[in-house]
Amino acid sequence: MAELVGAYFTSHVPGIGGAIHRGDQETPYWKPFFDGFPPVREWLEAMRPDVAVVFSNDHGLNFFLDKMPTFAVGAAAEYRNADEGWGLPLYKSFAGHPALSWHVIEQLVADEFDPVTCQAMLVDHAISIPFELAYPDAAEWPVRLVPIGINTVQHPLPSARRCLALGRSVHRALASWPGNERIVVIGTGGLSHQLDGERAGFMNPDYDRFCLDNLAADPDALTRHSIEEIVRLAGTQGVEVLNWIAARGALGPAAVEIHRNYHLPISNTAAATLVLEPV
C-alpha cells in the first residue's frame, strides 16, 4: 500500500528563486524566511517521499485566458519549466507519474468533479520554488510529480469549500492507490498579499494566523469565507490559499502540525511554511 507521509506548504514568491540564485539565504532580509526550511528538509529526509501531489496555480506560463480551467490535473510523463517572461535560468524538470495521475482523475470524476486533463503541461515557479527550498542540493528531484492546478487568476474562482472537497477526493484516490509509493502532498502560494491596485502591498497577519491555526485541526473553518471575503482579508493574490486548502483536504481527515514558520515581508508577501502529518 502507498503511504501518505504528510503535507508541506510554502509560499512561492518568484523573488525566492532570485534569492537562491544570488545566495542571499543568510542576509538579514531573507534569513528569517530561509530559516524555516532546515526542519522541512530533515522531515523530508526522514519521510523519503518518492511522489509529490502538488496543488498550485499557473501564472501565465501553461494557461492563458483563451482556455482557463478551474481545475486541471497533469498526466504527463515529464513536466518542464520554461521562460516565464523574465529570461531567468530554467528550473529543473520533473518526472511525472501518469498512472497515478489518471487514478486521481478517475476518482475526481467519479466524485463528480470535472477537471481538465493535461498530458502536456509546463510548470512554473509556483511548483519549482517549493522544491528548490526543500531539496536545495538535489541534482534531480527525488520525487515524481502529480500537479493539480487551481484557477486563482480569473474570477469566478472555485470556492474554498469546493477546493477542500476537491482535495478530499484526491485523498480518496491516494488511499485506494495500490502502489507502494511514499506520497507527500504539497500546497503552494500565499499567504496574504496583493500586487495590483491602489491597495498593493496589503498583508494581513490576523487572517494568515487564522488559516495557519485552523488548517491542521479544522480546515472547514477556512471555508466559511467566500472568495470575495478571502480577497478582502488576504489580498487579490492571497486567494492562492485555495491551494493550501485543497492540499489539506488531500492529506485526509485528521492532521497534526509538525513545523511552522511565518515571516513578512518577503517581497510583497506574508510568507509561511508549514508541515503537517496525518494522524
Binding site: 480569473q154 474570477h155 469566478p156 495590483d196 491596485g197 491597495r199 470575495e228 487579490t236
Partner: peptide
C-alpha cells in the same frame, strides 16, 4: 466593493 481592488472577472 473592496477598496483599492479590482477583481479580475469575466
Amino acid at each position: 466593493s473592496i477598496p483599492g481592488t479590482v477583481l479580475f472577472d469575466g
